[in-house]
Design a protein around this nucleic acid. Sequence first.
DNA 1: AATGAATGAGAATTCATTCAT
DNA 2: GATGAATGAATTCTCATTCAT
Lengths: 218, 218, 218, 218
Amino acid sequence: MPTEFRKQADARRREQRKEALLDAAALVFARQGYHRALVSEIVSQAEAGQGTFYRYFRDKREIFDALFDRFVESVFAEFSEMTANLPRDVGEYRAASVAAIRRIAARAEGNRDLLMLLVREGPTVDEAFARKLTGFYEGLAALARGYLEHAIAAGFARRCNAEAVSQALVGMAFWMAQQWWQGRLPGVTLERLIEEMVDFAFLGFGGPVVVGGGGADR
Amino acid sequence: MPTEFRKQADARRREQRKEALLDAAALVFARQGYHRALVSEIVSQAEAGQGTFYRYFRDKREIFDALFDRFVESVFAEFSEMTANLPRDVGEYRAASVAAIRRIAARAEGNRDLLMLLVREGPTVDEAFARKLTGFYEGLAALARGYLEHAIAAGFARRCNAEAVSQALVGMAFWMAQQWWQGRLPGVTLERLIEEMVDFAFLGFGGPVVVGGGGADR
Amino acid sequence: MPTEFRKQADARRREQRKEALLDAAALVFARQGYHRALVSEIVSQAEAGQGTFYRYFRDKREIFDALFDRFVESVFAEFSEMTANLPRDVGEYRAASVAAIRRIAARAEGNRDLLMLLVREGPTVDEAFARKLTGFYEGLAALARGYLEHAIAAGFARRCNAEAVSQALVGMAFWMAQQWWQGRLPGVTLERLIEEMVDFAFLGFGGPVVVGGGGADR
Amino acid sequence: MPTEFRKQADARRREQRKEALLDAAALVFARQGYHRALVSEIVSQAEAGQGTFYRYFRDKREIFDALFDRFVESVFAEFSEMTANLPRDVGEYRAASVAAIRRIAARAEGNRDLLMLLVREGPTVDEAFARKLTGFYEGLAALARGYLEHAIAAGFARRCNAEAVSQALVGMAFWMAQQWWQGRLPGVTLERLIEEMVDFAFLGFGGPVVVGGGGADR
DNA sequence: AATGAATGAGAATTCATTCAT
DNA sequence: GATGAATGAATTCTCATTCAT
C-alpha cells in the first residue's frame, strides 16, 4: 500500500545512510586505527543511533571490508582506462609511466587517508582481510607485469624476472606513497619524486653512469 | 649470609625469566597479532603466573617495545661490521651489495616471524611505536644513503636524488622480504631473487637496453 | 461516500489481520519459546510490517495473552457441551470419562503445539500470566471436582478428598498429554493410554487386587 | 614456589566462591525466573565482581546447569538409600510408599524454591536443558516403574501398563508438589495430602467402592 | 619474588518500540 | 492504516591490571 514512490524514497535514504556510515567509518578508522576505533564513535560521527549501524553492517569488521571494496572498485575503474594503448618504445614507455603515476597520485591524493589506512591496518585486521589485501596487490602486480613483459618482448626493457620485478615496483610505489604522505621526504617535490622513481625504475641508480654517463662526459 | 652469590643467582634467574617472557611474547604476537594477543597467553606460554608478567613489564605495550629493542640491537650489530670498507668501483659495489644482502637475509631468516610481526603490526600499535619504527627505517635508509652518496661522489652511480632512492631501496627490501616469506614468489629461488633485486637496483629494468641503445649511438 | 460498506470491509480486513498475527505468533512462540521469540519474526511470518504489530497489540506480552484467551474460549465451549448429563453409576461414569477424554484428546490434537506452549512457557512469562494459567487449571479442577463429588455423593466413588484428588487428575492429564505428544510413551497407543489412565484413576494400581486379596483373606 | 599450602587454601576459597555463586544464582533465578535473571544480579547477590562470574561459569546457561546437577546428585543420593529392601505385601508397599514420600517431601522442602524453579523454567531454557530435565524425569519414572513391576509380579498390584502408570505417578507427584507449595491446597495438611495421594495411587477414586459396592449389592 | 584469583571498566550487540512517510 | 527504518536502553562478556597470600 505505501508503494513505488515510498519504496524509492526509502531506498534512496537507505543508500545515503550507508554512505554516511562508510564516510564516518573512514574518518574514525583513519584517526584511531582499526583496532582502537569504536562503533560508537562511527555512529556518533555519522549522527546515527547505535542500532542503526547494525542494520547496515554485521560488525566493525564488515564495514572495514565495505570500505575496502568501495575503494578498490574506483581504483580499478581508473586503471582500466589506462590499459588501452601499450607503449611502442622506451620514450613512450617512460612518458606513459610518468603520466600514469601522476594521474594515480592525483587520484590517490583524494583517498590518501583511506589508502594509508587500508595498507597499514589491513594486514592486522584478520587473516581473511589480509588475503583480500594480498589479492589487491597481486592484481596491481599483474598489471605491472603485463606492461613489463610487453616491454621486454618488444626489446626495450632488460630481460629480467618479471615476476619479481613487478612485485618490487608495486612495493616501492606503496612505500614511497606512504613516505611522501607522511612528510618523510621533505627535500623533494611530488613532481620530482615521480620523475626520480621512474628513472630509478628504468635505469637503477647505477644505470646510465656505466655507459652513457661515461660516454656523455666525453 | 651468602649475599653476593645469592644476588648473582637471582639476577641470572631474573634475566632468564625475562627472556622467556620475551620469547613467549614473540610467539604469541606472531601467531595472533599484537591486538588479539592476550597477556594470559603470553604468561601461559612462558609458564609463568599472570602477576609475574607485571614484575618485568609495565604492560602489553612495553613488552612489544622490548621485543623491538632486542631485535634492533642485533640488527645494527650485524650492520656495523659491514660499514668497515667502502667499495671502490661498480663491480665491488655490486658484489658487496649481493654479499651484504645474502648475509642479512640469512640473519633475518632466524627472526623472520618477529621481523614480519614488527613490520606488520608496529604501525598499528600506537603513535609512539610507529615513530620508533619509522626511526628504524630512517636509520636503514641513512645507511643506504651513505653508500649511495659515496658511489655517486666516486662517479660510479648515477646522479640521482639519494634521499628518495635510498628510501625506495629500503621499502623495496622490506616488501620483497615479506613477499618471499609469505611464499608469494614461487617461481624464484632466494639466490636468484637477490641477484634480481641488485640488478634492478643497479640497472632498473630498462638498464642494459640503454647500453644496447648506446651501441646504436655508434 | 460508501461509509457503511467501507466500514464493514475495513473491520473484516482488520479481523483477518489480527488472526494472521495470532497464527503467526502461535507458530513462532511454539518454535522458539516465548522469551526467544522475536516480534520481527512474528510479523515477517504474518507478512506484515513491524509497525503493524503495534496497531493490534500493545506488546509481545499482550499477543501471548490474546493467544491464550482465544484458546481457552474454545476449550470451555467444548466442555460446556459435556456438563449436560451427569452419570448415574460407575459404568456410566467410566464410559462417560473415556468418551470425554477421547473427545478432548481429539480436540487438543489440533492445538497441540499451542497447548504445550501455554503449559510450558506460561508460568515463565510473568506473574500475571502465571495467575491466569492457574485460574485455568483451577477451572478444570473445579469441573473435575464437581463430577467427583457427585460420584461420591451418589455412592459410586470412594470417599476421598475431592479437592486434592481433582487437582491430581488435572495434573496427571496435562503431564500425560505432554508425554504422549513428545513421543515419550512409545509402547502404548493413544486409545490404550486413555483406557489405562481412566482405569488408574478409578482403580489405582492396587485396585482390583485388593478385591482379589480380600477374597484370599477369607 | 607458593606450593602446597597455598594451593590448598586457594582451592578451598575457589570452592567456596563457586558455592556462593550457585547459592546466589538459585536465589535470583527463583525470584526472577531464568529469563529475567541478570548475571549482574547474581554477582551482586554473591558479593562478587562481574568478571568473577565468568571465571567459574561460561554464562548464565551454565550456572543453571550446574545448579541442576548439584541438585540431582543430592536427590539420587537420597533415593539410593531407599532401593534397599523391596516390600513384600500391599501393606508393606503402602507403608513404604507413605514413608518414602514423607522423607522426600521433607528433603524437598529444603530445596523447594530450587525445585520449583527447575521444573517451571527448565523446559524453556534450552533444547539441551529440556532434554536433561526429561532425562531426570525418566530416571524417576524408571525407579517408580521398578517398584510397580515388582508389585505386579508379586501379585499385589493390578496388571496395568507400568510404562504409562509410572509416568502418571511422577507427573502427579510434581504437580501436587507445586500445588502444595503454592498454597493451592488450603483445605489439606501435608500429612493428609500424602495419605490421599497414596490412597489414590493404590485405589483410584473408585477403588474400594467397587468392593464395598459389590458387597452392598448382595 | 611469584602466583593466580578477583576485579570492573569498557565494548559489542540485540531487539522491543517509536515515528516519519 | 500500513510500513519499515531508526533508535538506544539494556545486557552480556572480555581481559588488562591489581592485590592478597
